[in-house]
Design a protein around this nucleic acid. Sequence first.
DNA 1: ATGGTCATGTAAATAGTTACATGATTCG
DNA 2: CGAATCATGTAACTATTTACATGACCAT
Lengths: 186, 186
Amino acid sequence: MVTELVRENKTKFIILGLLSHEPLTGYDLRQIAERSIGNFWTDLSFGQIYPTLRTLEKKGLVSKTVEVDEARPLRKVYSITQEGREELQKWLVEPADMEIFKLDILLKLYFGSSVGVEHSIKKVEMFIHRNETTLERYAAFEKSLRGIVNQSKDHKFFLLTLEYGQYITKAQLQWAKHTLETLRTM
Amino acid sequence: MVTELVRENKTKFIILGLLSHEPLTGYDLRQIAERSIGNFWTDLSFGQIYPTLRTLEKKGLVSKTVEVDEARPLRKVYSITQEGREELQKWLVEPADMEIFKLDILLKLYFGSSVGVEHSIKKVEMFIHRNETTLERYAAFEKSLRGIVNQSKDHKFFLLTLEYGQYITKAQLQWAKHTLETLRTM
DNA sequence: ATGGTCATGTAAATAGTTACATGATTCG
DNA sequence: CGAATCATGTAACTATTTACATGACCAT
């Protein structure tokens, strides 16, 4: 039996999702993606964005208007079409895929027995520092978001993903502090 | 200025790391990887393993012995060489890369405003169920590990990565339960 | 002047997945 | 008798990154 497993191109749906909020250029897409889904997804690169926009346009899922403003770089502003919205909705109702985690620090800890525990300790300390910084950034973000969260549903959804980041980052900090103690007595 | 950023092939170091514990076949590698680093890294596929083993052998980082046992498939058992250990150690002392998270459920929640909140609720419920199952699996694993953890350093490192999984999974459950409440009042 | 931001894109390489191909043994 | 496990691997495709190429404006 041939079970044809169509691999879903997430970049495609991220672009469609972002365009479902507002029309954007390829350049905008990268920045908006970073700011909106950046805590739980890898950044989009131009090498992904521009080719994907072209195929999306070919399939009629997005449409393009070119803004020619002299003395300013030309902007190709993309909007989602009705077919695009339908494609997005078909994907949205499907069950979510498994989470993907790639923790280089755990790889290096797990295989670290051959290089001395001081290297592991240093990595965990850096990890703690990084997560503390992230938590501060989240707190500032949350503060500004709490004020406007009742203005739109989108803000509420954004807050949910921000809270995910906060829960995870706090858990990572707890783990890291516990791990430091363990490593120091090894 | 040309900043040559060499993209590190993690698969290579995972294989080297696993072989630094014991000699293994390509087939073994997939299973051992799944059991050992599977909670924080995506599984290795044969399409990655066999070609990587070949290039690793060509570079002299691993060596191969062929076990011909009649009435049994032939086994190519790979061992790490001294050069391989040095390559591994060079990588181990480098600072750890940023964590990579890909949360399809957050993508679908974030873009979910166009399909009705009941779809989001169902996804979060499934997420809770999945995480509860994972937590039970971790608990069973921990129990069996606590008994033997003093027998080897490797068990201690394994326990650290298992604990990471536990902290994260608990945090995800807390977030998901809070999120369910929020979604139900939307 | 230098670097940052805005804005487009392509080409080449690397990474990773999936399907296919083969075949014996073991377990229920 | 069929499914799972052991064991090898390749080919084709898809995904993603990185470097390169271009060029104007604006702030320091």
